[in-house]
Amino acid sequence: MSNTKLIIEERAADIGNFMVGRLLPFRQKRMVGPFIFIDHMGPAHLGPGQNMDVDMHPHIGLSTLTFLFEGSVFHRDSLGTAIEIKPGAVNWMTAGKGVVHTERTPEYLRDQEKELHGLQIWVALPKEEEECEPSFTHINASDLPAWEDNDVNYKLIAGEVFGKKSPVPVYSPLYLIEIKTKEAKTINIGEHLFGESALYILEGAIKSDGNTFGPKQILVAKDSTLCSFEMEANTSVYIFGGEAFPEERFIEWNFVSSNKDLIEKAKKDWTNDAFPKVPNESVRVPLPQPKSFKSK
């Protein structure tokens, strides 16, 4: 971006049998628009018996968005949802006042070689929706708006921009856009963007202000309306952002809220086993100690 405010390097962390790169929150930038947490899962090759197994854990005050590039994850939650997500589709779960879920490698893949690669994103809810009833929506890959312009491929994963609207039921003005090109191209989309904006480079490289940036970097824009950059051949980027909230958001473990008291209540409720249960699941992730979430 020609008006880069901040460059965030991906930071690695272990989750089970694979590495995730933590992108947000970052000590110098806690949120971009309503986006408060982004993990880059993989890419990981998992052998027979090596599986993703995230046991029952709770959320409040946010929506989770799962988007896979490779592999498959089976989602179960306390609403009774039981569904497999595959590459290109979207799982959108709104926690609101409280939801519990698990994420696992599907049974039919557990004894096979497999890949796992994707993004896990948390979107904070507006203050008036933070205690809404929880819900879950699965969007098929074919239902997401996708188009080509000047040999550049675009996909609107969530939100409303470019005069198009994703079927993902978001709660505030935002956007999550995939841009891919096989040839070197100059991208100038600032007139379509609004609020705060950032660009994540998945593969390839972009050039901006005479600098070249590669994979696993996020560029945060000073002004989203000036968003312009050069994509090298065989590059994929994700642009995300939207209107920022007027109130600060707090994050501890899996809980997000504008009200610290709601986070404290959620922590006590989880410790006391007062959250709803996930059918056919029995193992709970304990509340971590120390209790505060700290980004590296």
Rank of each mutant, 00 (worst) to 15 (best):
I15S: 04
F194V: 08
L226H: 13
K207D: 06
I206Q: 12
D77P: 02
P288S: 06
G204A: 09
L202T: 01
S135L: 08
L62G: 02
K267D: 02
I239H: 07
G214C: 05
R11C: 01
V278T: 07
N254P: 04
F74C: 08
I189A: 08
H138G: 05
A95G: 11
R249Q: 13
W92L: 08
G42A: 05
V152G: 00
Y238A: 06
P173C: 03
K260R: 15
K180A: 12
F18I: 02
G159R: 01
A12F: 01
G195V: 02
I201R: 07
S208I: 01
F26A: 06
Q50W: 10
I206K: 07
G159Q: 02
L174N: 12
E131I: 10
V168K: 09
S228A: 09
E203C: 04
G159A: 10
E160Y: 00
H45I: 13
I60F: 05
N272A: 15
G61M: 05
D55C: 08
S295V: 09
C227N: 14
M52F: 11
P106H: 06
E130W: 03
A158I: 13
S78G: 05
F69I: 03
K260Q: 13
D143A: 10
A146D: 04
S172T: 15
M1C: 11
A141R: 11
F162G: 12
E129G: 00
E129P: 00
E103D: 09
S224L: 07
L23H: 08
G49E: 12
A184I: 01
G210H: 04
V278E: 01
A89C: 10
P145D: 07
I8Q: 01
E113W: 10
V73G: 06
E183C: 02
A13C: 01
L144T: 03
A221Q: 04
R76Y: 01
G190V: 11
E160C: 09
A233D: 13
F37Q: 02
C132H: 01
L193T: 07
V220E: 02
I157M: 12
T225H: 11
K267C: 02
F35Q: 00
E113M: 10
L287G: 05
